[in-house]
Design a protein around this nucleic acid. Structure first.
Length: 585
RNA sequence: GCGCCCGUAGCUCAGCUGGAUAGAGCGUCGGCCUUCUAAGCCGAAUGUCGCAGGUUCAAAUCCUGCCGGGCGCACCA
């Protein structure tokens, strides 16, 4: 359904024919030939660079070759004209029948319009959020959460088989601190401790209710026992409780990952040891002493021999430790095990969503994966920049009861899941994002989620209107599938079809580049074209969608409205947002 | 000191993996409501794409070097 792909095939067929005829060299490389929408719509509907790319290797001049190609390409039944422009562009203008036919395919396809097969059913593992289970999710997690989830849906629409995964960091020192924090709350309940929680522990009051539940279950039997007795019990209980809370919060924003992998389980299964053995076999592990880190004051630095990974063989100047001073594995070591585990589960396409503060870690993990899989697995790490919470332009001061951060659930309760999901994609992942709690709820042009939803709702209002004017008639999707579209002649109407026709290409390019924000930008563009068309009828009543005394014209135009709505709904669906049929309360 | 990301209109940002005269929103200025919801639309002005080289038919886009901003840099995750 990607029309540019169809024309690309056509161009390539013609080039192949010219080779057979001896007009072009038999071994001419045509892989650089592209068929794209031109930047400026005045240049036509489709632009092809073939003449410019092929002129030199085929020993001809660009414009000359372009003229030759133009003659051949004119014969396509959908092509109105082909003109040679600029340095040798081939600009195609497609005939109106083509656009009518395309609109019909949109209406016939419905939700499936834009589905692509570029993924060829390949498996992709998208790992996102993976927040430490030491507390509730906060705003900082929201962006990566939405980004990963929409990217996953996008890849599914593009024909990939996607697994949505969460890695639970339940093995390090942090979860031990969590266990001690819970134990402190537990002792607090029994009156054994009072006052401020000691430093280093997690002070948020979210552990109080967890302690109560544990007290209800076990009574006070853990009091006065040494840490070695209770630590693993409290740790397990705390992690389970936090993960349940995290999953509930995610569910409230429409995220339901299918796979949760425990770091502790990986370590206990011996996977980490096996990974280090594999690296050792490849002669990439040794025992050595690192230089002190530069650029940062490290008062507690001490020289000590460590088990190191020869990261320097993969382009950096420093090797990285696999074991901590206390003999346990570093995060890096278990992370390598985790990624090898992904690979062993059959994934070669790996995507990780991380916060930008982990940027320095990307190359290390990529290098590890390369070493472990002999370059057979590919990892793409997408870094999400910070979100700045604002309240009408000022730094937000929402409640911070759960610690010193705004939680995800507070954010979702405040503005709603759909708003959070859309706004998080209104910037490219590596650009900082301002999230204004007031402005995202405004009903104005400035607010993209509103603007897009308004286009969707407006399509319903048009059809309601049509039903009032023509009570005897049927404006259902079924009846419009076979409607005659020839009455769509207006330039702006055809322009809207052309924007609708970009959708499959947007899906494919966004999926291939792992950039879901393109959906949000495209939907704004589509909405703008629709609102513009609507508003033109203000000054020219003949452009209205509903024409009082012309049923067939009304039906035709409503088919166009339906095509627009189909794509908006489809886009919002990929973004995990419920399209609204009415905006009025 | 090293690595990664960013630098595009007054502001906030896109720019379709190398295409044509670099776009959008906000803001500014000028139009448009007896409304298929003006919750909006139309038009105008605004640029050394950080700087300097290089690659080629073609560079905001790729390469190199600077300048400026952010993040990270044993053992935490």
């Amino acid at each position: 359904m990607n029309i540019f792909y169809n024309f690309s095939e056509f161009v390539n067929d013609e080039l192949a024919a010219l080779k057979l005829e001896g007009v072009l060299p038999k071994n001419l490389d045509t892989s650089n030939v592209s068929v794209d929408p031109p930047r400026d719509t005045a240049h036509g509907d489709i632009a092809c660079n073939a003449a410019m790319v092929l002129a030199k290797p085929s020993g001809s001049k660009p414009r000359q070759l372009a003229e030759l190609l133009a003659e051949r390409l004119k014969k396509h039944p959908a092509v109105e004209e082909v003109v040679v422009a600029g340095p040798g562009f081939l600009n195609f203008r497609l005939n109106i029948e083509f656009w009518h036919a395309h609109l019909r395919t949109v209406i016939l396809a419905g939700d499936s319009y834009g589905n692509s097969r570029i993924g060829k059913g390949e498996q992709v593992n998208v790992e996102y959020i993976s927040a430490n289970p030491t507390g509730p999710l906060h705003v900082g997690h929201a962006r990566g959460a939405v980004f990963g989830d929409v990217l996953a849906s996008l890849l599914e629409k593009a024909g990939y088989l996607v697994t949505r995964e969460y890695y639970i960091n339940d093995a390090g020192a942090q979860v031990d601190e969590l266990a001690r924090s819970l134990y402190w709350r537990y002792c607090e309940l029994s009156g054994k401790v009072v006052g401020e929680m000691p430093g280093g522990l997690y002070p948020g009051d979210y552990l109080i209710s967890v302690a109560k539940q544990l007290m209800d279950r076990d009574g006070d039997c853990w009091n006065n026992l040494p840490e070695s007795e209770w630590l693993s019990v409290f740790r397990g209980y705390a992690v389970d409780s936090m993960m349940k809370k995290i999953r509930d919060d995610l569910s409230n924003i429409g995220i339901n990952q299918s796979t949760f992998i425990s770091e502790r389980a990986l370590v206990e299964s011996g996977m980490v040891q096996r990974v280090v053995d594999i690296l050792d076999d490849k002669n990439l592990v040794y025992n050595g002493v690192l230089e002190p880190p530069k650029g940062k004051k490290t008062a507690d630095w001490e020289e000590r021999p460590q088990t190191l990974f020869k990261y320097s063989q993969f382009g950096d100047d420093v090797d990285r430790p696999l074991k901590k001073a206390d003999g346990t594995w570093t995060y890096f070591a278990s992370d390598l095990a985790y990624h090898l585990d992904k690979n062993k589960r059959g994934f070669t396409n790996l995507i990780n969503i991380w916060g930008a503060d982990h940027g320095g870690y990307v190359k290390r993990v990529s290098a590890g994966i390369e070493a472990l899989t002999d370059g057979k697995a590919n990892l793409d790490v997408k870094l999400c920049q910070l979100v700045r919470l604002l309240e009408d332009g000022e730094t937000a001061k929402m409640s911070k009861r759960a610690g010193n951060f705004v939680t995800l659930s507070e954010l979702v309760n405040s503005v709603g899941k759909d708003v959070v999901r859309f706004i998080m994609l209104t910037r490219k992942n590596d650009a900082q994002l301002d999230f204004d709690l007031v402005k995202v709820l405004e009903q104005s042009r400035d607010n993209p989620i509103f603007y897009v939803q308004y286009a969707h709702a407006r399509s319903y209002s048009v059809i309601r209107m049509a039903n009032e004017i023509f009570p005897e008639s049927d404006f259902s999707i079924e009846s419009l599938k076979s409607i005659n579209l020839e009455l769509l002649k207006n330039k702006d109407e055809i322009a809207l079809i052309k924007i609708i026709a970009l959708w499959p290409r947007i899906i494919e390019s966004a999926a291939e580049s792992h950039e879901p924000h393109r959906l949000a930008f495209y939907l704004c563009e589509l909405a703008a074209a629709f609102h513009s068309l609507w508003s033109k009828a203000k000054s020219d009543a003949s452009l209205r969608f509903v024409i009082d005394d012309d049923l067939s014209l009304t039906q035709t135009r409503i088919a166009l409205v339906l095509g627009m709505r189909t794509v908006v709904a489809s886009g919002l669906e990929v973004m995990g947002i419920t399209p609204l049929e009415e905006l009025r309360a």
